[in-house]
Design a protein around this nucleic acid. Structure first.
Length: 275
DNA sequence: ATACGCCCCTGGTGGC
DNA sequence: TGCCACCAGGGGCGTA
């Protein structure tokens, strides 16, 4: 489910709900997510004030007052919901946090729900976590540019689509936005990564940034289960130009959008417009 | 180092 | 209505 724009949308909702407030208590549903939750997770969270909520790629990072950081990945089907009243338990609620102000007042609840359990949560001390090391630059940050992208793709024989999904090359892009960025830049998902150079690299870098930024503005893409923490859906699905449009006509040339499978992921593209 | 296939898991959908 | 195959916003791991 969630790619960078959806995770960023979640982050924007969590900032006012968490920053400067306190995790009064934590309750764990089932701990066997992608990886087992730390046995002492609940006790390490309880009572801690939240300094800030950041994002790295598709990860949410919640910094606590005592130097610990909570790492949250939503996997394919994860969501975070905020509630004013104690929430009615739902299937697949895995972590429930009660959030109060510094004096214990105005309580709220945060619920991490994930049916498929491809997501996970961890807590660590210090600067970084093994899962964050080696991750590529933020596509909306200063470390990402056409020259960077060209360099990162150089020597790679696999399809450029696969390279865009590789979090070690650039962080946060998933299947939807990889397809969309390739369509907008007129590059075939099957093109060898190393052959994306010069003008093509410039167009691709610009399309990646542009499509992600526009998706954030629309609150992300809600296809099936993605919702924002307040329950709102994201509206970027209306702006998708190729993803999920197999058999429909290309918005640029009127030709037929095709569907292929690359590394067991669906790719959608226009064979005429994308070379 | 890179590339690929396999696996983790639940739920919704469409065909018969 | 029921059953079943197939598909889904991800990514780690083992193997060539």
């Amino acid at each position: 489910m969630p790619e960078l724009p959806e995770v960023e949308t979640v982050r924007l909702a969590l900032v006012p709900a968490m920053e400067g407030r306190r995790i009064a208590s934590a309750r764990i549903g089932r701990p066997d997510l992608r990886w087992p939750l730390a046995p002492d997770l609940a006790s390490r969270l309880a009572g801690r004030r939240v300094l800030d909520v950041r994002r790295r790629g598709k990860y949410l990072l919640v910094a606590l007052e005592d130097g610990q950081t909570v790492l949250l990945h939503l996997g394919m089907s994860g969501s975070v919901r905020l509630h004013d009243a104690s929430p009615v338990p739902r299937k697949h609620d895995h972590v429930i946090l009660e959030i109060t102000d510094a004096n214990g007042g105005s309580p709220g609840w945060l619920v991490f729900n994930d049916p498929r359990r491809f997501g996970w949560m961890d807590i660590y001390d210090g600067d970084t976590h093994p899962l964050l090391e080696g991750m590529g630059p933020e596509p909306l940050g200063n470390g990402f540019s056409a020259p960077f992208l060209e360099g990162a793709l150089a020597g790679r024989n696999g399809p450029v689509k696969n390279a865009l999904l590789n979090q070690r090359i650039v962080a946060g892009i998933g299947n939807i936005y990889a397809c969309e960025a390739l369509f907008e830049s007129g590059i075939s998902p099957r093109r060898r990564a190393r052959s994306v150079r010069g003008v093509r690299a410039e167009r691709l870098a610009e399309s990646v940034r542009s499509v992600l930024a526009r998706a954030i503005e629309k609150g992300g893409t809600s296809l099936r289960d993605h919702v924002q923490p307040g329950g709102e859906i994201g509206y970027f699905a209306q702006s998708l130009k190729v993803y999920g449009r197999a058999g429909d006509s290309c918005l640029k040339c009127g030709g037929e959008i095709r569907h292929i499978v690359q590394s067991a992921r669906s790719s959608f593209f226009c064979p005429a417009c994308q070379r």
